[in-house]
Nucleic acid binder design. Structure first.
Length: 820
RNA sequence: GGGCGAGUGGUGGAAUGGCAUACACGAUGGACUUAAAAUCCAUUGGCCGCAAGGUCGUGAGGGUUCGACUCCCUCCUCGCCCACCA
């Protein structure tokens, strides 16, 4: 229990007030110190935060405080990603307007940030649901529209029947709605898209420039963009004018094509089947499988289904006619929606061919074991030697890919192409609580953008929250009905709002001039402060949020609004805190309230434990007992200060104990500094400080009366090194040690290289067996003694037996081995 | 199915080629106390041993090396991301 110990309540309140007064977290625009922009992903405002949330902000705050101590002019802003579904869903349920609940939650969250001691420059707060912000989200939409990067099309979209809204592909998890877990269905709606696919290549290539991003995140982005090089090949449909183009990365298998299969949404289907005798059946098949596809985004192991169209296509490589099928396993949006099927060398085609009795023709031979098409149990997808492929026989398949591509291009039957998995970004939401899309529809003049000077398009406040499949804005006539900006006649507003990922794709630019009502961001300021030096957030945003932000930044760059191409120079993704092995959530009933713990132990204890629990990029299991340990440690240091104040320093005789303490002190500075600069492994930084504290206790108990000056330095060092982690109590201790200024004005200590123990010494020497045993016999000798022996006996070369040892291994002062 | 990561005491974890288990939690015993709390001290991987000490030990098996938790190969288990992307 926490009743006996330092009085954290007073101390924490006292120093928070001080920091506020001294403007510790206010960025100084006039400063000449080097800048450091440390950005936390701005949160969605939710009511009750737990220790898992706390971890994110505590990590960020520790970095910020460390950088302040290192003399940087730090920008550490905070804001709120305040539009979004939960507030609107709550409004439907309990009738409280989203704006009211959201602003209330923001208030609560600000208080909780405070309670963790997390410091921000609140004068720069950004709240995405306020008109002063979403005005500029709308402005960004208009810029994209101007550039032809925003367009509308009818699209088959994921529809959540429960939320009554459209979901992005990414919001569909295992065929279910990410938020409410209802089964997702398909719907055709006119939707707004942003043309992120225009930037596929650059979004991919520029990943390389992001040296300080976790490889894992870059890989996820890379896979998401999904670039593949291949060939588009034209197949003429027999007895028809239609030419079907398919995309393949395996042009080497072209001679093995035994059928072609197109998606059930392929645009040429009506033309292809218009005279088919079983047209009705085919149409039924198409409708059935489309419905299944929608329901079965689960993916896993859907049964492959297909139907013959009655048509044949001509393989341009060998002029053979092969049947044309419609299949449920062809992805409409990828490539051309048509696939040349090579059952012998593609597992999916193999399964399909087996099921429907289609031909299997081997054209790549396995060099290890000859392939017989008849006996194949699965497709052979590896490289090999070309067979049954006309003039390409005998080539290695990898070479044949190039040769056949050349052949296609020369004969104008195909061409090299690059395709991406990345799809355009669907931003329309049939929802109220988001930024209205600034477009107008006039019966006479058609669709047109809202004039920039008329922004923002304000969200009306008086709204009925009754889901009916369209935006609630439809029921706000004063919003919908306006005069056409061109002809002045009757016109309607767009009633869809934007995906909140649009809001969050540019907020980091707004922090530099949050109040500016003339422009979204200040070119000069953002060019000075961005890219963000350190971005910190959850790995769940590793793909979408980061990709969208990178996209918007590139567009702004292309339009000349900013001078940098990537928003975030360095990225850190932290793990979440679990309890009983699962993520904390109200519904699971495993939430550890941070307010309660802070009440009991104070913010510093909660911070220390949170940082100590595990390396911050990993998930970590919460333990209430562990908190007690952190509390004990802080009190242990606290007592050290109080004792230290009573000590009389005797400036005399530094002995062996002083030397050890000095070594430990400097080793600790080195360790903590390296962890702060590099991996953010606060857990090992803190444990090394704990070791130093233990060392100090040892020192004290061994020399209770005569205490050297080394003790003072060690204690002072402990306090400074602890400051980023437990700022309040560190300040208090710093003051007790007689310092007048805040510890955050103190200089972070440099370590003295000479004071450290040299870890390993490698000496190139010669040696024979006799000396070896002699040295081994003195393994416990000090480092100097071993070295002396080496010098005396070996360098003089008296023992050389013709053998040349590679090195002597001495680890931490002891001979470990002799390499001959 | 593909990609990535991880597997170390009772627990969280440390060590990235050099004393395996730092630091902390928990546990056991002790000191202090009328008692409790707090604090301090000792022990805490397994096995053998009264002890000194010995021996085995980082998911399993093999390899490289004077030396492997660490590097390489095969396999097992778990986690995350993607998933019919031709």
């Amino acid at each position: 229990m926490a009743q006996e110990g330092y009085s954290f309540k007073e101390i924490e309140a006292k120093w928070r007030k001080k920091w506020d007064e001294m403007g510790l977290f206010k960025m100084d625009p006039a400063s000449s110190r080097p800048k450091y922009y440390c950005l936390m992903m701005f949160p969605y405002p939710s009511a009750a935060l737990h220790v898992g949330h706390g971890r994110n902000y505590i990590i960020g705050d520790s970095v910020v405080r460390y950088k302040i101590m290192r003399g940087y002019n730090v920008l550490s802003p905070m804001g709120f990603d305040a539009f979004g579904l939960p507030a609107e869903n709550a409004a439907i349920k309990n009738g409280i307007h989203p704006e009211i609940s959201t602003l209330n939650n923001i208030k609560t969250m600000r208080r909780q940030f405070d309670s963790w001691g997390a410091g921000y420059d609140w004068s720069r707060e950004v709240v995405s649901c306020l008109p002063g912000y979403y005005k500029w989200t709308q402005w960004i939409f208009l810029q994209l529209y101007k550039k032809g990067l925003a367009y509308k099309k009818k699209a088959s979209v994921n529809w959540c029947p429960s939320c009554q809204t459209v979901l992005a592909n990414e919001q569909v998890v295992d065929g279910k709605c990410e938020r409410c877990s209802s089964q997702v269905t398909l719907r055709d709606l006119e939707q707004w898209f942003l043309k992120i696919t225009d930037y596929s290549e650059r979004l991919l290539n520029d990943l390389e420039s992001l040296k300080d991003w976790p490889e894992r995140v870059k890989l996820m982005q890379k896979n998401w963009i999904g670039r593949s090089e291949g060939v588009e090949i034209d197949f003429k449909v027999k007895d028809s004018n239609v030419i079907l183009t398919c995309f393949t990365t395996r042009a080497d298998t072209i001679y093995g094509v035994t059928y072609m299969v197109i998606s059930n949404e392929h645009p040429d289907i009506p033309e292809l089947i218009k005279n088919a005798p079983d047209k009705k059946e085919i149409e039924k098949f198409i409708n059935d499988t489309r419905r299944e596809n929608a329901a079965d985004r689960v993916g896993a192991d859907i049964e492959k289904k297909g139907m013959f169209t009655g048509k044949f296509v001509i393989n341009p490589a060998n002029n053979k006619a092969v049947p044309l099928w419609i299949g449920n396993y062809v992805v409409t949006e990828y490539g051309t929606g048509a696939v040349m099927a090579v059952p012998a060398h593609d597992q999916r085609d193999f399964e399909f061919a087996k099921k429907y009795g289609l031909g299997i023709e081997a054209v790549i031979d396995n060099p290890k074991e000859h392939l017989e098409a008849a006996g194949m149990k699965e497709a052979y997808v590896e490289e090999g030697i070309m067979i049954n492929s006309g003039k390409f026989n005998g080539l290695a398949s990898a070479d044949a890919i190039e040769k056949i591509a050349d052949f296609m291009e020369e004969n104008n039957i195909g061409r090299r192409e690059v395709h991406y998995k990345l799809r355009d970004w669907l931003i329309s939401r049939q929802r109220y609580w988001g930024a209205p899309i600034p477009m107008v529809y006039c019966d006479k003049c058609g669709m047109q953008p809202v004039d920039e000077k008329d922004l923002p398009v304000m969200l009306p406040k008086d709204i009925k929250f009754k889901p009916h499949g369209e935006s609630p804005l439809k029921d706000a006539p004063e919003f919908v009905n306006i005069k056409c900006p061109s002809c002045g006649g009757n016109a309607r507003r767009e009633i869809d709002t934007m995906d909140t990922f649009v809001d969050s794709s540019w907020y980091f630019l707004r922090y530099l001039s949050p109040e500016d009502d003339k422009k979204p961001f200040d070119k000069e300021l953002v060019n000075k402060w961005l890219p963000v030096d350190q971005y910190i957030g959850g790995v769940e945003h590793a793909i979408l949020h980061l990709l969208y932000s990178r996209f918007i930044v590139k567009v702004m760059y292309d339009m000349g609004y900013i001078g940098f191409k990537e928003p975030f120079a360095r990225l850190f993704t932290q793990g979440m805190i679990t309890k009983n092995g699962i993520k904390m959530s109200k519904s699971k009933g495993n939430v550890v309230s941070s307010d309660g713990l802070i009440e009991k132990y104070g913010a510093d204890t909660v911070r220390l434990y949170t940082l100590f629990i595990s390396p911050p990029e990993k998930d970590a299991e919460w333990s209430d007992k562990g908190v007690e340990g952190a509390w004990r440690f802080i009190n242990r240091v606290w007592r050290l200060i109080e004792d230290g104040l009573r000590l009389k320093v005797e400036g005399s005789k530094p002995d062996e104990k002083d030397k050890t303490l000095k070594q430990k002190t400097h080793a600790t500075i080195k360790k903590v500094t390296e962890d702060m600069e590099g991996t953010f492994h606060f857990n090992t930084a803190i444990s090394s400080i704990m070791e130093l504290v233990n060392e100090i206790y040892d020192y004290k108990s061994s020399q209770p009366s005569a205490l050297g000056s080394q003790l003072k330095e060690a204690i002072r060092t402990v306090v400074i090194l602890l400051a980023p982690f437990v700022p309040h109590v560190a300040e208090e201790m710093w003051e007790k040690l007689g310092n007048k200024e805040s510890i955050f004005k103190a200089k972070w200590p440099d370590y003295d290289r000479n004071a450290l123990v040299q870890d390993t010494i490698e000496l190139p020497i010669q040696i024979n067996g006799k000396l070896r045993s002699k040295i081994e016999a003195s393994l416990n000798a000090g480092e100097d003694e071993i070295r002396a022996m080496v010098m005396k006996d070996i360098v003089v070369n008296k023992w050389t037996g013709g053998k040349e040892p590679k090195k002597i291994i001495i680890v931490k002062g002891k001979l470990v081995n002799i390499v001959i």
